[in-house]
Amino acid sequence: MVQGKKSGQIIAASDAEKKVLEILATVPDPEVPVLSVLDLGVVRNISVLETGSEKTITKDGEPATDEIRITYTPTYTGCPAMDVMKTQMRIALLEKGYTNVQFEQVLSPAWTTDWMTEAGKQKLKAYGIAPPQYKQAVCTPDAFQQEEAIQCPRCNSYHTKLVSQFGSTACKALYQCVDCREPFDYFKCH
């Protein structure tokens, strides 16, 4: 597998990897179900160790399958959705016959909203969550800094205000549109 230079998105280097990526693309983030684990950018690497074309029989009498290795990174260290995503990836692969799946967590480089796919950002907006800014103002520890103008996902107004830096999940901040009055989540830059 190779990584796209700009987005950090992963691109299959073989047909076997392509099949696995197609399966992972169907696994949703349990907190934001319009995003797949690939849209979110938490899958950092996959590799497929092929067992060969003819189905050999293992000692247990089970047909041997390819070994899938998935390297992932959490969005936030305490995000409880990560364990769910791992389980769902395992189940989705199991349904397609992949019984041998290994997961490895990497923390560095740390996950960033820059790794979210363009399609993912569009889906977020359609779902009513403001996507992370393209040119992100990296959060600094300074108090009362000038807030970024976040576009309301409902009426597209930039006339919005921050309600709280912490929202319903670790990855979101709470905003309100001053024009249409709609409160909304912003997938905050990280």
Binding site: T77, L107, S108, P141, D142, A143, Q165, F166
Partner: peptide
């Protein structure tokens, strides 16, 4: 120590938000 460094790198992004939030409250 690569593991300590990796955890610190990850945690720092979160703590940045904590510093900002808590200092605003102190002020």
């Amino acid at each position: 120590d690569q593991q300590l460094a990796a955890i610190a790198e990850k945690a720092l992004k979160e703590v940045t938000y904590h510093v900002r939030w808590s200092s605003e409250w102190v002020i």
